[in-house]
Amino acid sequence: MATTYLKVMTALVALSVGCGSPAADQNEADGDLGNKADPDVSDHYDDLHHNRDNNESSNNSYDEDEVGARETSLIVSVRGLVEFGSVEGGTDALHVVELKAFGDEALIIEAVDVAGEGFSFEFVDAEVVLPLQLEDAESVALNVIFAPTHSREANGTLELKTTAVRNPVASIRLVGNEICGRLDQPAQTAFDGVAVGSERTESFVFTNCHDLVEIEVLDVSFRPGPAHFHSDFVAAFDVEVPFFVGPSESLSFPIVFAPTQVGQHYGQFDIVTTSQVRPNDGRFAGRVTGMAE
């Protein structure tokens, strides 16, 4: 039994020394593979770098044949609107508009048309005639002019007809605000010493002092004064609005004072126009006072 046991132990020891650790053997095998250059992996890595370099090179270059020609265009120095503001009658105002060509082909300005009362144009260079050909980056300037003829807002358009590819007709809106025609302030009218039961008539005189411009009247009205005052006034005029007061023309608006009570009477006369010469949007106010006995 002792001999048999010894033989078995000797065999086990020999087996352990000869075989080694399975895990160690696997690690050693893995290490050997890791230190070897796999030709397939290496070639693939080189291909990636080669392709990336080629892509970067292609992105930084272009084929000139693929770049299209620059389309013929018109560049205008204003963006669709020219505002002249308030211009006094008998005078004019101008705004310079520059027209510039862009593109590989020449631009031809075929026509320039202005619509709207009081608006006109002229080229800054009086020798310019239409049709006009402009090469790339070449420009021409024109004066757009507003010379008002009446006292209300004026609207117009400047239309440019060209050979531009995408927008051959360019339109610019023109606006002139209400004209500052000179107007007389309606006089204050006072009724003094009028007996109760009697009446007296006085008139407001509204005058357009300008000798060239007509004034548009939007409303004419009369209203009582504050509640603590009597107001035995009657407007003796009947007008249809709107209407125009011509240059240097005057209109009379009669007011009748027929008091029924003794004391102070008060009223307000208003004319609303399109003129901006007054600070209150063209409104002219006249006071009416009366002392009844």
Rank of each mutant, 00 (worst) to 15 (best):
F191S: 07
A24P: 06
Q276T: 01
L218C: 05
Q188W: 06
S57C: 08
E199Q: 08
N54I: 04
V78L: 08
G85K: 00
V196A: 06
I75Q: 10
E178V: 07
V175P: 02
V239P: 01
H50Y: 11
H150P: 02
A141M: 12
E28N: 09
Q261D: 05
G103I: 05
V256G: 00
P247G: 08
E199H: 05
S275I: 06
E202D: 09
D30S: 14
V241W: 00
I255D: 00
N51R: 14
D192T: 10
K36P: 05
T274F: 00
N280K: 06
F257R: 12
L134K: 03
E66R: 10
R52H: 08
R200F: 02
E98S: 13
E98T: 12
V96R: 13
L81N: 06
A292W: 10
G34V: 09
A29V: 07
G118K: 04
T91Q: 09
E240M: 01
D65M: 06
G197H: 12
E214Y: 13
H50T: 11
N59A: 13
F237C: 06
F244Y: 15
G103C: 04
R166D: 13
E122I: 04
A93R: 04
P22V: 10
S42G: 08
V239G: 01
S57K: 05
M1R: 12
I108H: 08
E127S: 15
V277E: 10
G80M: 03
L183G: 07
S231K: 03
N167A: 13
T157F: 12
D43C: 04
D281I: 03
S16H: 14
Q276R: 02
I172F: 11
P254R: 02
A24Q: 14
V245D: 01
G181N: 15
E216G: 01
G290I: 04
E88S: 13
S73E: 14
D32R: 14
V196C: 05
G89P: 11
T149L: 09
V217A: 02
S252A: 14
G31T: 12
P247Y: 06
D63A: 10
V220L: 03
L142K: 04
T201I: 15
A2R: 06
L142G: 12
F206S: 01
L134S: 05
T3E: 15
V169Q: 12
E202M: 13
A11K: 14
E66L: 15
D63R: 08
D53G: 09
H210F: 08
P131N: 11
V234L: 11
F121W: 15
Q268A: 05
L48K: 09
S231P: 04
H265Q: 07
V128N: 10
D53T: 11
I179P: 00
F84Y: 11
A154L: 03
G286I: 00
L183M: 15
D211W: 13
E202K: 15
